[in-house]
Nucleic acid binder design. Structure first.
Lengths: 353, 353
DNA sequence: ACAAAAAATGTAAACGGTTACATTTGTGAA
DNA sequence: TTCACAAATGTAACCGTTTACATTTTTTGT
């Protein structure tokens, strides 16, 4: 069917070894010979079979990646970074998703291990209990986590989520907010959301404010409005600022607040986390903590290559994050009766008077 | 190092054939024997090497995918669909990006072909001139395009972009718009944008309106504001509605208009194309043509599997699209002197009284 | 208990490369 | 020209599976 190295060798009247050496440039082949080989390759449309090569060299030149979902742009950004970094090294990318489930992670890793990827870049729901990570460790395939919190001496590329969460609290407090809240994806499936929450709560507590309302949502399943509505029944008690555990969630929250006729940021400020591109383009622009997703992907890939090349112990890296103010966050509104001056129409849902 | 089928065979005191048959369930192995094999596999942590298997069976159980960029959610959605569909069949996904360049496409396809993927799902800039498609055809690896326009009898999964474009024109005209415009990504790198434009122009022409302003932008590179500003110098001449060739672009356009202090949709309506999730969550919700990206990915994968299984000629499928109105599109504003009543602050940029 | 048929298992040759080692060819100095 | 040595090339084993075919074991019918 398709030409093999032996076909080329026969046509060029050389040995397979010579063809191999010509193709890979591993040894010099004489001009005359090289020409014959080159001709044969073109004549036959020969394309080296990576499978044969992999079996022989026991290296696949491929990197496996496991992300919870590809629908959240924050992960696409990381994929993009990984993709760019490994292409440069001639590697290819096998992408799998876990749908935020530990079983999904195990399945994904199993597949990748069977495919003998040279390294793995992944994000798990919980590094502490992850069976997938255990599989990886047993297999001795080098791996790096991204987004996950450092733990157990495993390598991870992430930002300081606790510090960032605290920073968000600080910024909101600086804007005069006194009643804060957080809307987060399930902590069980996101150690970083948990870390952000912890930092946020600490920041609020340090400022001697009442502890923030924490609202855990199953983002993929629930309608955010249903969660937000009771929370904002009484605007005098409701938080004047919400920290969301990621940008997608924040965008949804802003949309839901609008539907509840609550103005952002006039009545409620919203801050996200991730720094996905669309947040900068939309209106209101999203106040958020920007994490360098693409760079994280690249860094993870580089880390992997270093280990594949030399040895080097796995090493975690904390990358810099940056709080970016946007139109979705502003000064705290005063929720006394003069509240009615706010531009949005008062509705029966609001506090009386 | 890592256990092979021979290690298992030795430990279980059977032949490699028996192990292979046990692992793949291709033949019955007697209870007693099966137990020994099972034990040996667990004892050694044996995991079949897909590379060896692939070489032997000359099938990799992997599908290659080439998309222009992973940063546009419309493509992530397709990846998501493909990923889900192929996982079900036990296939894995090798993902590559072309950065909207024909050379990138060729590189990607070359890599995929060397890796002997069993099939390819891809989106190219221009099917008519694509060297990548030629490579694929020469290689005899089954492939399906997604998003691309049907051409040359090659299989593609897409929506009717021309009809959709025309439909958008119709909807805007129905809303009373008379001066229409389109902002599009480079036609040279998107046959579907071109098709949408053609339909749009046709729709406008059929309504006997003046031809729409067409504005081609290098979206990744340029700042949209620079493009929009001259267009909206004179509001009496400027279009009252803009059709954007994709949602991401539309979101940026809305943002840019806001920065130019032009209200959406009060002064200018904006309609996108794709139906990415964020458009439904943001404010204003994005009026757009929803195409079933995830379904397209799934359909492409299924098409590939059918061909891998039975034979079947490649077959293009036109999937249904759906125009969805959103808050970003509304009735045409009257741009006579009473224009000043519009909520947004008049600026020197606007037409004089 | 025995032969024949059926079921289970084993043997060894692919699959398409790479590479250690062996061999041939080419080069330069005497 | 001849020899020693270097450079180029060739030979064949190996990487980890699958599977056609051969062989052994079990089952079945009598």
């Amino acid at each position: 069917m398709v030409a093999t190295i032996r076909d080329v060798a026969k046509l060029a009247n050389v040995s397979v070894a010579t063809v191999s050496r010509y193709v890979n440039g591993t040894r010099k082949v004489r001009g005359k010979t090289a020409e014959r080989v080159k001709f044969a390759i073109e004549e036959l449309g020969f394309r080296p079979n990576a499978v044969g090569r992999s079996l022989s060299t026991s290296t696949t030149k491929s990197i496996g990646m496991v992300i919870p979902s590809i629908s959240n742009p924050v992960f696409s950004d990381a994929v993009s970074g990984v993709s760019a970094a490994i292409r440069k090294e001639g590697y290819s990318l096998t992408l799998t998703t876990s749908q935020y489930s530990p079983e999904g992670e195990v399945d994904a890793i199993s597949t990748l291990l069977e495919n003998r990827v040279d390294g793995v870049i992944l994000t798990v729901t919980d590094p502490e209990t992850s069976k997938a990570l255990e599989l990886l460790e047993k297999s001795a395939v080098p791996f790096v986590m991204i987004y996950n919190q450092p733990s157990s001496g495993r390598a991870t590329m992430t930002v300081d989520n606790v510090a960032a969460g605290k920073e968000v609290a600080g910024e909101l407090i600086k804007l005069g907010h006194k009643r804060l809240g957080m809307v987060s994806g399930k902590f069980a499936s996101s150690d970083r959301a948990l870390a952000r929450m912890n930092g946020f709560v600490k920041g609020v507590r340090d400022a001697r404010l009442t502890a923030p309302v924490i609202c855990e949502v199953d983002f993929e399943a629930q309608d955010i409005s249903d969660v937000l509505e009771p929370m904002f029944k009484d605007m005098n008690a409701a938080p004047s600022a919400l920290f969301c555990s990621n940008d997608i969630l924040a965008i949804s929250v802003i949309g839901a607040l609008r539907r509840l006729k609550i103005a952002v940021p006039k009545e409620v400020s919203v801050i996200g986390f991730d720094g996905i591109a669309v947040g900068r383009h939309m209106y209101p622009t999203l106040a958020t903590v920007v994490q360098p997703s693409k760079e994280m992907g690249k860094a993870a890939a580089r880390n992997l290559f270093e280990r594949l090349a030399g040895g080097q112990d796995p090493q975690s890296v904390i990358l810099p994050h940056e709080f970016t103010i946007g139109e979705s966050a502003g000064p705290a509104a005063k929720h006394d009766p003069t509240d009615l001056q706010t531009q949005s129409k008062p509705t029966s849902k609001r506090s009386p008077t």
